[in-house]
């Protein structure tokens, strides 16, 4: 197994690893950096539990080879909260019943986060499309949709402020 040096931005900080570039970004995040908030649900891009932001866009980290992230920025669920200060999306998810088992939640929140950044005033159908790559088996998506819609103005305010 040949290793390569990969240099990238992880949650706003410079990161460097010496690794087999075929290893998935999901494994890199979890095993090399101990960021276990990103979940492994299927390993094939079919459930969205591993969603992170790559260059600001939601992607399935299980499908991205480490070699591809060289020079890129990667953002995970761990970047959304600092101590007790949680992101409006996280707050809305907690308050609206958007979380049951919680396994899809980090990926779901990251999809919603990427979406709201470019769509600050979304309509419900747009929200449903934005999370259509994130399977949730518990909630039927209703309270998730409500949480994302509720978080939108808060997040917009925060971004402008």
């Amino acid at each position: 197994m040949k290793k390569q040096v990969i240099i990238f931005q992880l949650n706003g900080e410079p990161a460097e690893i010496h690794i087999d570039p075929a290893k998935s970004l999901l494994k890199v995040i979890r095993e090399e950096f101990g960021l276990y908030g990103t979940k492994a649900g299927c390993g094939k891009g079919e459930c969205g539990a591993c969603t992170v932001l790559l260059e600001g866009q939601a992607v399935n980290s299980c499908l991205i080879p480490a070699g591809k992230i060289n020079g890129c920025s990667v953002e995970t669920i761990e970047n959304l909260s600092r101590g007790e200060d949680i992101h409006p999306l996280q707050k809305a998810f907690a308050e609206k019943g958007a979380v049951q088992c919680g396994f899809c939640t980090p990926g779901m929140i990251m999809s919603a986060y990427a979406f709201l950044k470019s769509n600050p005033r979304p309509q419900p159908p747009e929200v449903r499309t934005a999370i259509s790559g994130n399977l949730c088996r518990c909630t039927g998506y209703k309270q998730i949709e409500a949480a994302i819609l509720a978080a939108a103005p808060e997040m917009d305010k925060e971004n402008k402020g």
Binding site: G45, G48, T51, L54, Q57, A58, V59, N60, L63, I64, S111, F115, T129, A130, S132, G133, N134
Partner: peptide, 9 residues
């Protein structure tokens, strides 16, 4: 195609 995540990549 697929999902937003797939379409992004």
């Amino acid at each position: 195609i697929g999902s937003p995540q797939i379409r992004n990549i």
